[in-house]
Structure formats: structure tokens, C-alpha cells
């Protein structure tokens, strides 16, 4: 069982059980859950809560790890809230091999740095891309459109993103 001192908050959202852990304990919490039988990391992603008024969010970025126990089959969502520029968190690619590409994708889209990842490079966007497209302050249509007549006047991605 995951130790209660690791869990900051727990609840159920639309039928899915979730827990929130402190980002510093994220790796030990996931490792404990893996020993409990949650052996499959279904997906890993990030949510940007910039200017989100639906509740008082503890930090801007929310990391979401969806775990599954394939025997029972139970789901558990693990959340961790992180801030910082760039936001940093420990990699879990060695605990859950599918996390390797998922962490690269989260880095590519949100700029979250996973410390300890062997090859944290862009995966979907070109290697020389500037900015992190899925951040909420990255505008849709903000990229340079090559071969366009308006090419010169298009704005590139904002420097802050």
C-alpha cells in the first residue's frame, strides 16, 4: 500500500480515483504503486492551468500519471503540481518503459524537464523549434507559415513561451 504520508489529497473525478502527491515524492510514490500492482503506465501528460479560474490551483503545471493494475483492472491517477521555469521533475522511464517517449512528448509540448531521462529531446516538433506549443500562452497560428505571401509579417512564437 502506498504510505499515507506521500498522499497530499485524494478524490474521485467523474468516476476515476486520483491522488495528489508532492512532486519531490513523485518517484517514490510511483515506485510504491508499481509494487502494489499498478504495473502499467497508461499515459503521462501535463495540464497547463494558466488563468484557470475553476479552482485555486497550487501551481501552474499539473503532471498526470494514469496507472492501471491489469489484474483487477483498477485505475489510479497520480497528480503532481509543479512550477518553475523550466519546471523540473524526476524521470520515471526506468520504472515504466512507456514513459520514455511520453516524457519526451511532455518536454516537447510543455517544456517540463525530466531529470535523469537519457535522451530528453524534442519528439514531435522539429529539433530547432522555439517555444512549447501546448502551453496556454502559446497562440494558435503563432508559428511562421513558410511559403506564405505574408511570411515576413507573421509573428514567431513569443519568447516567453
Amino acid at each position: 500500500m502506498i504510505a499515507d504520508n506521500l498522499v497530499v489529497e485524494r478524490g474521485v473525478s467523474a468516476g476515476d480515483a486520483w491522488i495528489t502527491v508532492d512532486p519531490a515524492n513523485l518517484r517514490s510514490a510511483l515506485s510504491a504503486l508499481k509494487d502494489d500492482g499498478y504495473r502499467l503506465l497508461v499515459f503521462l501528460t501535463c495540464v497547463d492551468h494558466l488563468l484557470d479560474a475553476s479552482r485555486n490551483w497550487p501551481a501552474r503545471y499539473e503532471l498526470v500519471y494514469e496507472l492501471r493494475n491489469m489484474e483487477t483492472p483498477e485505475h489510479l491517477r497520480v497528480r503532481a503540481f509543479i512550477d518553475g521555469d523550466p519546471p523540473r521533475v524526476e524521470s520515471v522511464h526506468d520504472l515504466f518503459p512507456p514513459a520514455n517517449w511520453e516524457e519526451r512528448e511532455t518536454y516537447d509540448m510543455f517544456g517540463v524537464k525530466f531529470t535523469g531521462h537519457p535522451d530528453l529531446t524534442r519528439i514531435l516538433m522539429p529539433d530547432d523549434w522555439v517555444g512549447y506549443p501546448l502551453r496556454r500562452d502559446y497562440p494558435v497560428g503563432g508559428e511562421v507559415v513558410e511559403f506564405s505571401e505574408e511570411h515576413e509579417t507573421w509573428q514567431t512564437a513569443p519568447e516567453k513561451a
Binding site: 473525478s13 476515476d16 499515459f43 495540464v47 494514469e66 485505475h75
Partner: peptide, 24 residues
């Protein structure tokens, strides 16, 4: 309503899921 949910369905290739977050 604000909240998040993950739904997985079996496609021809395996688990195709959709994780949706709503802020209301």
C-alpha cells in the same frame, strides 16, 4: 462541469484513450 476523466476504448490497434480536462 469542471473535472477530468479518462476513457479508453479498444481500437484495431489497441487502447485508444481520451483524457479530457474541463475548466467549466
Amino acid at each position: 462541469p469542471a473535472g477530468d476523466v479518462y476513457v479508453a476504448v479498444e481500437s484495431g490497434r489497441g487502447e485508444n484513450g481520451c483524457y479530457v480536462v474541463s475548466d467549466g
